Simulated scan of single mutants.
Amino acid sequence: MENPWPSRTSSASRQATARAWEKNVIALGLAAGFLEPLESTSIHLVQSGIARLLSLFPDKSFCEVEIARFNAETDREYADIRDFLVLHYSATERDDSEFWRYCRNLEAPDGLREKIEMFRSSGRIFRENNELFTEASWLAVMLGQGILPQSHHPVARVLDDEETLTRLAHIRGVIAQTTQQLPTQDQFLQQRGGAMAAEERRIA
């Protein structure tokens, strides 16, 4: 099946699609592009677009170099998020409908394919360009979709098994001790509700 995904870096792909910044018009959020809402990214894309605009804020000349940089970074951000979304579908084990069979047979985008191959090889995950989804997010979806590493990072062999188990036990202990000091959800809501009521009475 032909690869339907434009490259992150291909200038031809950018020229073939609408640009987020064209002359004196700048599209932000959903106006710049729509992504499958499987993961809620719209607010983030609005905020990152505004931050990018502020860093490249133009004068009346609207320099094309700055516009090109804005568009390139916007394209890359959308592609990074797209790859994470596509992972949910391309790695699925579902085959109970034509939709899921189609998704499973799609050729993965180049960036996603590289991430999967790297993870399968050694369990490594690289976060590209400070992308929205962290290593923990990629790990959760890959393992959840049954993508397992064939090996592990060599640094894992620096400590012997006993030391590794000791350190893991310490981490579990710290987590358990911390959670014991926190209120339950019901307790928190009751405390918060009482505090809000007291504040409302004070204002009134």
Rank of each mutant, 00 (worst) to 15 (best):
Glu2Gly: 03
Pro4Tyr: 07
Trp5His: 03
Ser10Ile: 01
Ala12Gly: 08
Glu22Tyr: 14
Leu28Met: 04
Gly33Val: 03
Gly33Glu: 04
Phe34Asn: 14
Pro37Tyr: 10
Ser40Gln: 06
Leu45Glu: 03
Ser48Val: 05
Ile50His: 11
Ser55Cys: 11
Leu56Cys: 08
Pro58Cys: 00
Lys60Asp: 14
Ala68Thr: 11
Arg76Tyr: 01
Ala79Tyr: 04
Asp80Gly: 00
Phe84Tyr: 07
Phe84His: 04
Val86His: 01
Leu87Ile: 00
Ala91Asn: 07
Glu93Phe: 08
Asp96Cys: 00
Asp96Pro: 05
Ser97Met: 06
Glu98Gly: 15
Arg104His: 10
Leu106His: 02
Glu107Phe: 07
Ala108Leu: 09
Ala108Tyr: 04
Glu114Thr: 13
Glu117Pro: 09
Arg120Tyr: 01
Ser122Arg: 00
Gly123Thr: 00
Asn129Met: 10
Ser137Arg: 10
Trp138Gln: 02
Met142Arg: 07
Leu143Asn: 13
Gly144Ile: 02
Leu148Gly: 05
Gln150Arg: 13
Ser151Asn: 04
Arg157Glu: 08
Leu159Thr: 06
Leu159Arg: 14
Asp161Tyr: 09
Asp161Thr: 10
Glu163Leu: 05
Thr164Met: 04
Leu165Lys: 14
Thr166Asn: 11
Leu168Thr: 12
Ala169Met: 10
Arg172Thr: 11
Gly173Phe: 06
Val174Lys: 15
Gln177Leu: 09
Gln177Arg: 15
Gln177His: 14
Thr179Cys: 11
Gln181Cys: 13
Pro183Ser: 12
Gln185Arg: 13
Asp186Gln: 14
Phe188Trp: 13
Gln191Val: 04
Arg192Thr: 02
Arg192Asn: 07
Gly194His: 03
Glu199Cys: 13
Ala204Leu: 13
